[in-house]
């Protein structure tokens, strides 16, 4: 089976701005692939390149085995796209837009369309101008999810949806995966990515900084340890891979690189442990490490 999305060394410039700077992205068939990055990192630009709307300046892009620019029309029959901000024609009803987009893709499943309308609680008779932001997103989602396509490209599709609808969305993405579809899900809602994605690509400033399964990414990162010890926690700070040691009386807190975890715990038990809490890093922390601070590590450590 071909790889649905293969991007290597993609460069896209707008004037003097380098929006994409050597981006790599591989999405395997049948997976839900998370595409993470802060605003302005180049997620939407990448997606527009994949849709053949923007030309590339350098790099190789393959979409469903074709060239997204040259073969745009043929490829678009096999994919559905939901933008992050669905805008509708003010004088067309939601139902008309859903059917129009479905028909332009080559047909949609009427049964699934009805199911989707019901589970998203969307009234298709309202005119485009009357929908709220969340309901406009639902129009885009229903049109995409009701289409019989191999690949779903979703660009922050749940912006404006409430938590209940977010849950409904997740159910439908899981169902799409069960049906054998591939999903590229760009997002900055980390809970959504953690709940849905098999693999994740994190990008920043137009280049990817991490790719892998969530487990792999966590493996590369630190564990936070919070312990009550019997003696004085000397020597911990000198261990390789241990960071940010904070001591308050008998309580010690520190972060440790996962490869150094074993040594750190050994040292703790030598001192004597009364209680211990350790937490894996959340994606929030991964994000904060990459974007929240100017870290000393060079971008692109763990390819």
């Amino acid at each position: 089976m071909e790889t649905p999305i293969e991007v290597a060394g993609l460069v896209k410039t707008f004037g003097r701005t380098r929006a994409l700077d050597g981006l790599d992205l591989t999405v395997r068939a049948g997976e839900v692939h998370g595409f993470l990055g802060p605003n302005g990192s180049g997620k939407s630009t990448t997606i527009r390149v994949l849709l053949g709307l923007l030309r590339t300046d350098a790099g190789a892009v393959r979409l469903l085995g074709g060239d997204p620019w040259r073969d745009a029309v043929a490829l678009h029959r096999r994919l559905a796209y939901v933008p992050g901000d669905v805008t509708l024609w003010p004088n067309l009803s939601g139902g008309e837009v859903i059917d129009l987009l479905g028909r332009l893709r080559g047909g949609l499943d009427p049964k699934r369309r009805a199911e989707l309308l019901e589970s998203f609680e969307l009234d298709p008779r309202k005119k485009g101008r009357a929908y709220s932001k969340g309901n406009r997103q639902k129009v885009g989602l229903v049109a995409a999810l009701a289409s019989d396509v191999e690949l779903l490209i979703l660009d922050e599709p749940t912006s404006g949806l409430d938590p209940l609808m977010e849950e409904v969305f997740q159910q439908w993405v899981r169902r799409a995966k069960r049906d054998g579809r591939t999903v590229l899900l760009s997002s900055h809602i980390l809970a959504e990515v953690e709940a849905l994605c098999d693999r994740v690509t994190i990008i920043r400033n137009g280049r990817n900084v991490e790719t892998g399964t969530l487990a792999e990414l966590r493996h590369l990162h630190r564990t936070s340890v919070d312990a009550e010890v019997v003696g004085s926690p000397d020597g911990l700070a000198d261990l390789p891979g241990v960071h940010d040691v904070r001591v308050e009386g008998t309580r010690v807190r520190f972060d440790v690189d996962n490869p150094a975890l074993d040594a750190a715990l050994r040292r703790l038990t030598e001192i004597g442990v009364r209680s211990l809490v350790s937490q894996p890093p959340t994606l929030e922390e991964l994000f904060l490490r990459h974007y929240g601070t100017i870290t000393d590590e060079p971008a692109g450590v763990a390819r």
Binding site: S93, G95, L100, K126
Partner: peptide
């Protein structure tokens, strides 16, 4: 009151739109 539109559409393609 705002008027409602049809629940499904017969727009055949770009020219219909």
């Amino acid at each position: 009151p705002p008027r409602l539109g049809p629940a499904d559409g017969g727009l055949a393609g770009p020219f219909g739109l």
